[in-house]
């Protein structure tokens, strides 16, 4: 793990509407290269908004985002898209693309406005499918895929972008346990290969499994940021979710409990 901060988020504030409360309120934390950071919080905490600001899709009202010590807005759109890939929470696909065609869209940051993907791009797209373990789906039409497979296609598309930073919006929220574990395992592997990963989730367990750094958010604010010791306490999680949450340790594994069985 390197200590060098790749992304520095400093005092970030953002509101969708001047009359409304801030969606993000003085958010600050750092992301180190080659680590997995998890933004953990309930629905409506401002997680997706934060991702949009990191992408450059929205501009902060105040505060700054530094990518390798340079403000984000000094990067061109194209340059930024070579840096960062996004895996959206879900995607509605209206047309019957094949998986390979869809993953090839991830090559856009490297192609000119009138250019079509070439053989080299196909090699990279196939490599991305290999990494996510769905190379066998290459010729399958997208509408014929299961939810878990579609999620892996979206991840493959982002990998075809060859990003140094991978942003994922709730990557596990639609998945069953088996597919969630597959996704988290792939993220772990990507981290080993040097990719910096940031994902949002409302599932504390997903954070427990892979995160190096956890950022707890609620109502647009960062309640805590750091490793497990600093963030995964019963008190802080209770504060984050607004319901009683207990962190217990069984057989050396931390488990999050928020509710007993209702009779």
């Amino acid at each position: 793990m390197s200590d060098r901060s790749l992304l520095t988020i400093d005092d970030l504030t953002f509101a969708y509407n001047t009359t409304q409360a801030s969606a993000l309120d003085r958010v600050s934390f750092e992301i180190n290269a080659g680590t997995i950071t998890t933004i953990l919080g309930p629905n409506g905490a401002g997680k997706t908004t934060l991702l949009h600001l990191l992408l450059g899709l929205r501009k902060p009202a105040s505060g700054s985002i530094l990518l390798e010590d340079l403000p984000l807005h000094e990067y061109s759109r194209r340059n930024l898209s070579q840096w960062m890939g996004l895996v959206p929470q879900s995607e509605h696909v209206s047309f019957e693309y094949t998986v390979l065609e869809y993953v090839l869209l991830g090559r856009a940051p490297y192609l000119g406005p009138l250019e079509l993907p070439g053989d080299g791009d196909i090699v990279i797209a196939r490599d991305a499918l290999q990494k996510t373990g769905i190379a066998f789906l290459e010729h399958r039409p997208i509408p014929a895929l299961s939810g878990g497979e579609l999620q892996l296609v979206l991840l493959s598309r982002a990998l075809a972008q060859q990003p140094r930073i991978l942003l994922l919006d709730e990557p596990t929220s639609h998945l069953d346990l088996a597919n969630r574990n597959i996704t988290l395992r792939i993220l772990d592997q990507l981290r080993k290969e040097g990719t910096t990963i940031l994902f949002t989730t409302h599932d504390p367990e997903a954070a427990l499994i892979v995160a190096d750094t956890i950022v707890l958010m609620n109502k647009g604010r960062v309640l805590a940021a750091g490793g497990f010791e600093e963030t995964f306490t019963s008190e802080k999680l209770t504060q984050t979710y607004g319901v009683p949450v207990e962190v217990v340790r069984t057989d050396g594994i931390q488990v999050v409990k928020s509710m007993g069985r209702l009779s």
Partner: peptide, 22 residues
């Protein structure tokens, strides 16, 4: 000439944006 870009423009705005599309 822009026919391949159409695929990108058919994506959700945030995804298209993240792929460097104006």
């Amino acid at each position: 000439l822009m026919r391949w870009r159409l695929n990108l423009l058919a994506l959700e705005d945030e995804t298209a944006f993240s792929l460097g599309v104006s």
